[in-house]
Amino acid sequence: MEEKYRIDPELNAVLPNLSEEDYSSLEKSLLTDGYKGAPIMVWGDVIVDGHNRYEICNKHHIPYEVKQIDFESKEEAVRWMVRQQIGRRNLTPIQRIEIAEKYRPFYTEKAKENMSSGGKKYSPKEGLQNSSTLSNENKIDVRAKLAEVANVSTDTYSKGKKILESGNEELIEQTLKGEKSINKAYNELKASQKKEFDKKIEGISSSDLKSELQDLKENKRKEVAKKVRESREKYGIESPEYDEAKAEQLNVEIQINELENASCNSDGIERVKQIQKRYRDYLDVFQEDVNWLLSMEFYKNDEEITSSIHSELRNCMERFKGVDSLITRMTIDDLGCIVINK
């Protein structure tokens, strides 16, 4: 069959990619049973659903069925394609979010167009006035629109997006399979990130802590402030891009606060370590001296008092060991206080 339809790269990006195993299985089924099921959907000469079946049928000259569908714009075509994928089978919330994210570029572009309408440039001083000239129907909340497509709340959508972008493959897979809810996975992600940050702080020296703190204050703080300003000027203060930039700015300030506390506490930790080392060194020397004294005999006014002295020395040594146990378990908590670990 002569090929007469094409695959639009931009629309193709919206469609799910089949794994090699699934593609091979589909190819085997078409070769064995022929073309069955729903027709290949096309918009003019562009395929909007069934691109894998179309590719395989053309490759092996297998007859196939085609059905035309009309759209007013590419945006409408993408919306239809996304909803087709979401409604095709039972999906977990995060799977619906993953599919809906493919529609983000179209909403983002539309939001940009609306922000620039009216011929006025958004400025820090006039931003609120300019944004108010846009009618409510022209404003686009990208996050809200995508959450609507995925049939989840905006809060759930934001959490799901952060999970998908986290790089934690195990957590992503567990959430995609429905083994963990988005809320549970998100809380685990935040706890994991906090643990990694704490471990990072614990593993570096006081001078490195101060160096990183300086970098956060002098570079990262300026970087996120610029991002906040640019997102405000480009998208407006009611946009999700501005919200995300502000959230990143808040996160930097939290890190600065934690590092400042850690930097102060690291001095206390170093002091505790010095005390612990000095006491251990002293105890080793004292133990040697006590052992030597325990090997000697003692007399007072020609009366042997060895047993009494040895007993006192042993009691003294045990008390020093008790203090050593206490000092060994000392550390500094987040508030800069000395705590004794169990």
Results as ranks from 00 to 15, higher is better:
E2C: 04
D8R: 01
P9C: 10
P9F: 06
A13K: 13
N17S: 13
L18V: 03
L18Q: 01
E20M: 12
E20N: 10
L26N: 01
K28N: 14
S29Y: 07
L31W: 05
G34R: 03
Y35Q: 07
Y35S: 13
K36P: 12
K36G: 01
K36C: 02
G37V: 03
A38Y: 11
M41E: 06
V48L: 06
D49A: 09
C57M: 06
C57I: 09
I62P: 01
I62L: 03
P63L: 06
K67T: 10
Q68I: 09
Q68N: 09
I69T: 01
F71K: 00
S73W: 01
K74N: 00
M81N: 00
R83H: 05
Q85C: 12
G87T: 02
N90D: 11
Q95N: 05
R96L: 09
A100H: 03
R104Q: 11
F106H: 00
Y107W: 15
A111I: 01
E113D: 05
E113N: 01
Y122A: 13
Y122H: 12
P124T: 09
G127K: 00
S131P: 04
S131L: 15
S135K: 11
N136S: 14
N138Y: 15
V142S: 05
V142L: 14
L146G: 00
A147I: 11
E148P: 02
V152N: 01
V152D: 01
D155M: 14
S158K: 03
G160T: 10
K161P: 02
I163N: 03
L171G: 00
I172Q: 12
I172L: 08
Q174D: 14
Q174R: 10
E179T: 01
K180H: 10
S181I: 04
N187P: 02
A191R: 04
D198Q: 12
D198N: 10
D198E: 11
I204S: 12
S205H: 06
L209G: 02
L209M: 15
S211C: 03
E218I: 07
R221W: 09
R221I: 02
A225Y: 06
V228K: 00
R229Y: 12
R232K: 12
R232L: 05
E233A: 03
E233Q: 13
Y235S: 02
A245Y: 03
A247T: 08
N251P: 00
N251R: 13
E253T: 03
Q255G: 02
I256V: 14
N257Y: 07
E260P: 05
E260Q: 14
N265V: 07
D267K: 08
E270I: 09
I275N: 05
K277C: 04
K277H: 08
Y279L: 10
R280M: 05
D289A: 11
D289F: 07
W292K: 08
W292H: 08
E297D: 14
E297W: 10
Y299Q: 15
T306S: 11
I309T: 08
N315T: 13
R319C: 07
F320T: 04
K321L: 08
S325A: 09
I327Y: 08
C337Q: 09
I338A: 10
V339L: 10
V339S: 05
I340S: 06
